[in-house]
Write a protein that binds this DNA or RNA. Structure first.
Lengths: 188, 188
DNA sequence: TGCCTGAATGTTAGTCGCTCACATTATTCG
DNA sequence: CGAATAATGTGAGCGACTAACATTCAGGCA
């Protein structure tokens, strides 16, 4: 029926690790869950876990959105100040995006939002995106200092919106992000 | 001559730990420096290090500014939107503050800015300040969601300004922060 | 001055995240 | 089927951090 090929062994153990990992994080907390426990629950060795994820936190953190964001920022008119260009670019990027498979994303974000050490990790992992945004703004004429502040501030708003969305049971991701950007774009 | 009492033993080992720690971080990098190495250089045991700092990163991260910030935000007129209230509050708070003993602060911020894992730690450690700002904004009538976004975004700008300041050899801390807030307050 | 109490430090052992070198078992495809 | 390659296991070890317990040191009081 479905056109999907049967999952390879690699895909199956990956899915098992994610499934058991998120499950145990939700039940007993991130810090209280050991990598060895997750591996054991997935029928695999601790070593194997680290072959799939470079660190424990990566079971919760992806981040595939860099190219879309930077492209959208590049499309903004250069007359606006960098801060507004970044905010509006992100806004229009998300508007154009299909709503992603939210169930698992919501679980991950909720775990991250509720775990102090992961909140830090989220910020660090946003570093790549931030760097991309900075480069785009600089390419469009902003100074590096200004670009760094603009990028950091806008992305912080985005992350805060993400966290709020995950904690509230309802609403779409796109709406939450729009509302977050509304808070910041007080100039029109 | 000086009115200072002679440093106690505790003060002396604390100073030794900070001094050798920062020194080694600058010379060989944060990740490449071991807590045991710092302790040894300070003539003390690894265990003693952790009696002074709850974690390695705390040798670099303080954060004594919460009360001043929240007070200044409370003083802002409530007609403005929360985002601007937070930004302007922080601005006026720093304007009123005496320029702190910058040499050691600059060293710490520079180390933090140049170490990915510490950038994340800074963000996590800002959580307290963020929470305080959120509470102040909510007390002044903002919704929690709006307050969280505003606080996160403004503090991110502040941190970005801090990092820029530390990396550039000259300029005062207050000026750097003002410039960072200028980027964000595009509405007037 | 000498003791005495509490602060400061040391010791040992252990957990957890994470890495490396090397051996072993599965998969898949010619 | 057999060989190449992918996936996993083993064991040893490092570094951050914690806890229980023992020890030494500092400074005030008789």
């Amino acid at each position: 029926m479905s056109t999907e090929t049967p999952p390879s062994k690699r895909e199956r153990t990956l899915a098992a690790l994610v499934e058991h990992g998120l499950d145990m994080f939700e039940r007993q907390g991130y810090e209280q869950t050991t990598v060895a426990q997750i591996a054991r629950a997935a029928g695999v060795t601790e070593m194997t876990f680290f072959r799939y994820f470079p660190a424990k936190e990566h079971l919760v953190l992806d981040d595939p959105y860099d190219p879309i964001l930077t492209a959208a920022i590049a499309a903004e008119p250069r007359e606006s100040p960098p801060f507004l260009r970044a905010a509006r670019g992100i806004r229009s990027a998300w508007r154009a995006l299909p709503e992603p498979e939210t169930p698992i994303i919501r679980r991950k974000v909720r775990i991250a939002a509720g775990t102090p050490s992961l909140r830090g990790a989220v910020w660090r992992s946003t570093g790549n995106t931030e760097q991309a945004v900075v480069e785009q703004l600089v390419a469009d004429g902003a100074t590096p200092e200004v670009a760094r502040v603009a990028a950091a501030s806008v992305l912080a708003a985005l992350v805060a919106g993400l966290f709020s969305w995950a904690e509230s049971e309802r609403g779409t991701l796109a709406d939450a992000i729009e509302r977050a950007l509304d808070v910041i774009e007080v100039a029109s």
